[in-house]
Simulated assay, not measured.
Amino acid sequence: MATFSLYQVDAFTDSVFGGNPAAIVPLEQWLDDGLMQKIAKENNLSETAFFVPEPEGAEYDFHIRWFTPGAEVPLCGHATLATAWVLFNRLGWNRDSLLLRSKSGPLGITRKTGGWLELDFPNLAFEETATPELVRKALPGAPATAFFVPSDTNYMLVLDNEAAVREAAPDMDALRALGNQGLIITAAGEKSDFVSRYFAPGFGIDEDPVTGSIHCVLTPYWAEKLARETLVAHQVSSRGGILKCTLNGDRVGIAGQVAFYMEGSIQV
């Protein structure tokens, strides 16, 4: 039986019990994929992040992977933000930035003033498409046109206003039938530039509280619509979270705060 450190922090919030909780498990070397999946299922959070150090002198500082309770995912924002916070504040990383190797390419994180951390993530392409029948079934009254994100297997619907996003109650069984495809809903915000919610029951997440990775799509979409490269986003789940987003060409800056909740260990 082996013992591993476990941290749980709330990302994209300045206070505990807000934002999106993530579990962080630092490793010296990779565990069996099946074991990491079991740990993520036991944690039962949107994502558990595992990371290992890269060899000294390598291009990257660490290699990161993310697991939902149901599957490994190619990109996760809030658990990356949480991982960076743990490295900066609990594991003695004394530089102001770090670079991670991931399934989605290089991911950078930089310390900002006021306790903010900024992710440097890819700008994800999306394409206009007819709204799938399963999505229309899950959300009656959905627009006839959606946007599909090939690299992250999500659909995005743009609704009329913030109230429509807040009041939406999708049929989870219908969305679950999409398998590994999630649904983003978004609209212009009343007190922020835009709002969103995200549903991925096929990954074991009915509604994700705050999702950094979907802002790789939301940021370029709303930057074009609003003719601004710097935006404030509000994910309006029950826990909610604030993100400061910047369009940087083929990259997206996604900044957030983190609130520490728990430190312990697991034995497996």
Score class of each variant (00 low, 15 high):
residue 167 E to A: 12
residue 131 T to P: 09
residue 153 T to D: 13
residue 118 E to N: 01
residue 130 A to W: 09
residue 172 M to Y: 09
residue 162 E to N: 07
residue 107 L to A: 02
residue 140 P to W: 06
residue 151 S to V: 05
residue 158 V to Y: 01
residue 144 A to V: 10
residue 114 G to H: 06
residue 123 N to T: 13
residue 109 I to E: 00
residue 153 T to N: 15
residue 156 M to A: 07
residue 145 T to V: 15
residue 127 E to S: 13
residue 169 A to Q: 15
residue 147 F to Y: 15
residue 134 L to R: 10
residue 155 Y to M: 01
residue 139 L to K: 07
residue 148 F to C: 01
residue 138 A to I: 05
residue 172 M to D: 06
residue 145 T to D: 12
residue 129 T to E: 10
residue 115 G to H: 07
residue 134 L to W: 01
residue 162 E to T: 00
residue 137 K to N: 12
residue 96 D to F: 09
residue 145 T to I: 15
residue 171 D to T: 10
residue 166 R to P: 07
residue 152 D to E: 14
residue 103 K to Q: 15
residue 160 D to I: 05
residue 179 G to M: 02
residue 128 E to K: 13
residue 109 I to N: 03
residue 172 M to R: 07
residue 144 A to K: 11
residue 145 T to W: 08
residue 151 S to A: 15
residue 105 G to T: 06
residue 164 A to L: 00
residue 111 R to M: 07
residue 109 I to H: 01
residue 140 P to D: 11
residue 116 W to V: 12
residue 115 G to D: 11
residue 149 V to P: 03
residue 101 R to A: 13
residue 141 G to F: 05
residue 125 A to E: 15
residue 150 P to R: 01
residue 103 K to P: 08
residue 154 N to C: 09
residue 164 A to I: 02
residue 172 M to Q: 12
residue 104 S to D: 06
residue 119 L to T: 04
residue 98 L to F: 04
residue 151 S to E: 14
residue 130 A to F: 11
residue 160 D to A: 14
residue 97 S to L: 09
residue 130 A to K: 13
residue 149 V to F: 02
residue 173 D to Q: 14
residue 121 F to E: 00
residue 117 L to N: 05
residue 117 L to E: 01
residue 159 L to Y: 00
residue 177 A to G: 05
